[in-house]
Design a protein around this nucleic acid. Structure first.
Lengths: 179, 179
DNA sequence: AGGCCTAAATTTAGGTCTGAACGTATGACG
DNA sequence: CGTCATACGTTCAGACCTAAATTTAGGCCT
């Protein structure tokens, strides 16, 4: 039972709203919907790829962030939360699970007040090395349907949109939406 | 405690892997990472917008699919699963929750063997009408940083990539990844 | 006609996330 | 120098999802 086999056509969604509720602003659907569907498809696929290696995506994300940081493969939980885009609570739980499996260790203290440092263990390092290139190869393959210049164009537009959305959210967070 | 405030720069991720593991295929990162980050940012925002209206995203998704289908606002659970891109089990739970709140009703039988029809109630219909345009206005606003021709270009590229990834997953599902 | 098989929904077990409540140590300030 | 405010990690309750086990209603074959 795969979770996401055949995304419902984006155009039909916009058309349906236009038909059912004429006048609705449907322009964003052409961007937001495929964006969401792609994220779902790619996320599901990554989960399946990693499941074969006995890891889950949340744990690999944690290990990857630490691995990418370079020696000594250590970051504070706050840094981890920011780079992973999840809440502090989620990081606490991720770290607890990974620690239980011996992939990271927590070292309290030794820095700013109340800071907890999280460090990759050799086992964690090994696991990352074994799985990350599988994921990257797989994803390179999955986007290979686009020609190099299309990939570049897409990456540029996504980057632009991301930066813009980011600043908007930073500003608007408090502002009421609608009226 | 917002969950996703400041995405970690995509370029730094690719650079870090190139530095830590020279030779890794990093080209997909420029697409997959911002895609994922945007989906997260937009999803978190939608959740916040809907929370104010007392709905969760999963329930609104269910109601929206039914509403878009038009009169008589009824679909089978299988149809719902396909259009929502989640498993049958998830649909079962979504419907159970929505039914508990009086937003939909389940009508067993009346068709092909073992089919269960799910229908929007007046309360569900009302809730959808009240919230959908809030979401669409908000999302229109969020993508408005891109100029109309950029939006169109982005929508086209996403559509192209989505179609391609979709066929690849349909074919490759069984194929081993890596070696 | 009876029993098996299959398809479809549901239930269950396990894992993850958010948001809020909690505990606590540090630093500031009187 | 003691108290209080604050910042930060953790814990907890509530939702949600997937994958696998379970249930059940028909259909089919002998």
């Amino acid at each position: 039972m795969a979770s996401a086999d055949a995304p419902y056509p984006v155009q039909e969604i916009a058309d349906a709203w236009e038909r059912e509720r004429p006048g609705m602003p449907v322009s964003s659907i052409g961007i937001v919907t495929p964006l969401w569907q792609l994220a779902k498809l790619l996320g599901d696929d990554r989960r399946r790829v990693l499941a074969r290696a006995g890891v889950d995506t949340a744990t690999l994300d944690l290990l990857s962030v630490l691995r990418r940081a370079g020696t000594p493969y250590t970051l504070s939980t706050r840094e981890l939360a920011a780079r992973s885009m999840v809440t502090a609570g989620a990081i606490s739980q991720r770290v607890a699970r990974a620690e239980r499996e011996g992939l990271v260790v927590r070292r309290p203290g030794e820095g700013r007040p109340r800071t907890v440092w999280v460090e990759l263990t050799p086992a964690g390092h090994t696991l990352v090395e074994e799985t990350v290139d599988r994921v990257l190869h797989r994803e390179t393959e999955l986007v290979s349907g686009l020609k190099p210049d299309q990939q570049e164009q897409l990456a540029d537009l996504l980057k632009l949109l991301l930066q813009d959305v980011q600043t908007r959210l930073g500003d608007d967070r408090i502002t009421q939406v609608g009226e």
